[in-house]
Amino acid sequence: MVKTDQKATAQLEKPTTFDLNSYLKEQKALVETALDQSLAIGIPEKIYESMRYSLLAGGKRLRPILCLATCRLTGGSTEMAMPTACALEMIHTMSLIHDDLPAMDNDDYRRGKLTNHKVYGEDVAILAGDGLLAYAFEYVANKTDNVAPENIIKVIARLGNTVGAEGLVGGQVLDLESEGKTDITAETLSFIHTHKTGALLETSVVTGAILAGASAEEIIKLTKYSQNIGLAFQIIDDILDITATDEQLGKTAGKDLAAQKATYPSLWGLEKSQAEAEKLIAEALDQLASYGEAAEPLRAIAKFIVTRNH
């Protein structure tokens, strides 16, 4: 631990009576049920089976849980946010399906199961990702109730921006271009991960607030919170790629090193990377101060991000 990060450490170690494990288990069950109900088998069966295979493959469901939590925190309800929560997971699943393809990261396992293209073939996997992406927008538009129409439009626009060239796609392109290069700076790496990983986490939080009709001041604070946890999430991912096992990750460990990808540990080392992640989380927690105990789920999730081992 770096001595200059005493404030970050103190915030992370602050005792709480909030039971995050129970909360995540409860919220994940709600999300899993909603996801299962969101996508029935249609014709042709193969594409729907492929879409459901990856959408229902498990995972932390962190993005939809963040959306639900933020909506409730800012005066909304679970019911208002659930269609967007499901859409966020559909978009995230699309990104994983495509990221695992041979043309991208060429992974055989995801969440402890064979990747989509290993089961259904590369052609169907590409189309399954496309199908989930398109359906995400349709689902928000058709299933969101008791939300002002202008806020639904804001959410749809936000999702489009997040997944496009200004977000996930742009980050992925720069990530691919950076493989094997030895002159990648911390600024470039931050751009990659802010767009590739952080953008969807940020949108998960902010769309929850938009749906609830949160004030501009609230959205500014929650944006800062989400940007910080998004970057911290990726730093910890980079650390775990080095320190965790295949079983802990649910996918092949050491892939970043093998692909000669620039990572935070490769630039800063493990100790500084961990310290930077903790600093980001401490700053994220500062943004929640005005909410009092009502923000405990978001606080606990932030702390979980920086202490997780899988």
Rank of each mutant, 00 (worst) to 15 (best):
E179V: 11
I156L: 15
R158W: 02
K181E: 15
L159M: 12
L176D: 08
E166G: 11
L159D: 05
I156C: 12
T185S: 15
D183I: 14
E179D: 08
G180S: 08
G170C: 00
L176Y: 03
T182C: 07
Q172K: 00
E179I: 06
T182I: 13
S178N: 14
E166K: 07
L176N: 03
K181G: 07
G160S: 13
S178W: 08
V155Y: 04
G160K: 10
L176Q: 15
K181Y: 14
V155S: 00
V155G: 05
S178F: 02
G170S: 11
E150A: 10
V155K: 03
L159H: 03
I156F: 12
V155H: 02
L159Q: 04
I184E: 04
V163W: 00
I184M: 04
I156P: 09
G180L: 11
G180M: 08
V173T: 10
N161W: 02
A157I: 05
V155L: 06
V173L: 14
E177G: 02
K154W: 00
V155C: 03
E187G: 05
L168Q: 00
I152W: 08
K154P: 01
G167H: 08
E187S: 11
G171W: 02
T162A: 11
D183R: 12
A165C: 06
G171M: 07
T185E: 13
Q172A: 13
L168S: 07
R158A: 12
I184P: 06
I153W: 02
L174M: 14
A165I: 14
L176G: 03
G164T: 01
I152D: 04
I152R: 14
L176A: 08
K154T: 09
T188G: 01
V169Y: 03
E187L: 13
A165R: 10
G171L: 06
L174R: 10
V173E: 09
T188P: 02
A186L: 15
L174G: 04
A186R: 15
N161F: 10
I153P: 00
T185W: 10
E179F: 04
Q172W: 02
V173R: 04
T182V: 14
G170V: 06
A157T: 11
K154H: 05
I184D: 03
Q172Y: 08
G167S: 09
N151C: 04
A186I: 14
R158N: 12
G170E: 09
I184V: 15
I153D: 06
V163Y: 05
T185H: 12
E166T: 14
A186W: 06
V173M: 07
L159V: 10
I184S: 07
L168A: 03
K154Q: 13
E179G: 01
N151P: 03
R158P: 02
G170T: 04
A157V: 06
E166Y: 12
G180P: 07
G160R: 03
V173S: 11
